[in-house]
């Protein structure tokens, strides 16, 4: 059953057909008379007019006023060290790249949010970032919400200086926040991921996705992240990513892989990993090689 079919089924399963109620006008008048008779009784307590106050018990549904987080951009170094974003961001880039491969002059934009996100997920493993920006509105933004704070809204097309050290992932000659965003996703794109996001279209202009990271070689099973994607005219206009307390990438697994590269491919190791810190060096030029080596590492584990 597809999602639209399930939603239609839920709607059709409505146990009460509103317009068929009180078909006899006498019943309508009886109920009105009863209401007016009750109204003559002592005043009701004000709590009948109040809205419920929900106890906050789920960070992913909680709306919290952030008071201590400074209102500046999240430092690039911090963004690079957020492995939880790696795969998620790569999905967008990869999806964009896939569109770029098929397009002649204009990007093919899917007709609904769920279709867009299904394409994103399908393209997660290709890591082709060409044309990544084509699926965003000119003023599109992204934002991270962490357990202990949040980033400001960051515009994808704000340019970054070359000194920021961010590769031109989409190869368009301009280094901007989108390249920074794409770079955060490279670990998932090299890690054998078969499905990154599981999405639902909640209305014609919104998709909500959970990160599932199926097949990801460095998966942290305790990781939770939810994306809320807003669309305008079929293009992504906003991405809000709420991240739980646990990173999406198991750092110890990454370090193990880095050590394995150093031990088994010493001639290449210096360009691929930092053997002291265990961090990966992933660039547009070596991404495919990393993907091959991760697959080799997984096979021999």
């Amino acid at each position: 059953m597809t999602q639209p079919q399930l939603r239609d089924l839920v709607k059709a399963s409505n146990p009460v057909v509103t317009h068929q109620l009180l078909s006899d006008e006498r019943d309508v008048r009886t109920l009105l008379a009863e209401a007016k008779q009750r109204a003559g009784n002592p005043q009701p307590s004000d709590d009948l007019l109040e809205r419920p106050v929900e106890r906050r018990r789920d960070m992913q549904t909680q709306e919290r006023p952030i008071q201590q987080v400074p209102a500046q951009k999240v430092p690039i170094q911090r963004r690079r060290l957020i492995p939880a974003m790696a795969g998620a961001l790569a999905v967008i880039v990869i999806a964009v790249g896939a569109w770029a491969l098929t397009r002649d002059s204009e990007p093919e934009v899917a007709s609904s949010p769920i279709e867009v996100m299904e394409l994103f997920d399908q393209n997660a493993i290709t890591a082709d970032y060409m044309g990544a920006g084509d699926i965003y509105t000119p003023d599109a933004t992204y934002q991270f919400i962490f357990v202990d704070g949040q980033s400001p809204e960051i515009r994808f097309f704000d340019e970054l200086p070359e000194t920021a050290g961010v590769p031109d992932w989409d190869g368009n000659g301009t280094i901007n926040e989108l390249d920074g965003f794409l770079g955060l996703g490279v670990e998932v794109s090299i890690g054998g991921t078969t499905q990154l996001l599981s999405c639902t279209q909640t209305d014609p202009a919104t998709a909500v996705c959970d990160e599932v990271r199926e097949g990801f070689a460095f998966k942290n099973p305790d990781h939770q992240a939810t994306w809320t994607i807003g669309f305008v005219g079929g293009l992504i206009d906003s991405i809000v990513i709420e991240i739980g307390p646990n990173d999406g990438t198991d750092g110890s697994a990454v370090r193990t892989y880095a050590g394995w590269v150093g031990a088994n491919h010493p001639d290449e190791a210096a360009s691929l990993v930092n053997e002291f810190s265990g961090e990966l060096k992933v660039t547009p030029d070596n991404l495919e090689r990393h993907r091959e080596l991760v697959a080799e590492w997984v096979a021999q584990r």
Binding site: M1, T2, Q3, Q5, L6, R7, D8, L9, V10, K11, A12, N14, V16, V17, T18, Q60, T61, Q62, E63, S198, C199, T200, T202, D203, T206, V208, C209, D210, T226, T228, V240
Partner: peptide, 30 residues
């Protein structure tokens, strides 16, 4: 956003609970 997320998770759970139902086309609602 909280409403969107709850709907998303509700439908995910309903998908699992109703997986056995045939995917017939339901035209319209109530």
């Amino acid at each position: 956003a909280a409403i969107d997320q709850r709907l998303h998770r509700a439908y995910k759970q309903l998908e699992r609970k109703l997986r056995h139902l045939s995917p017939y086309q339901v035209k319209g609602g109530e």
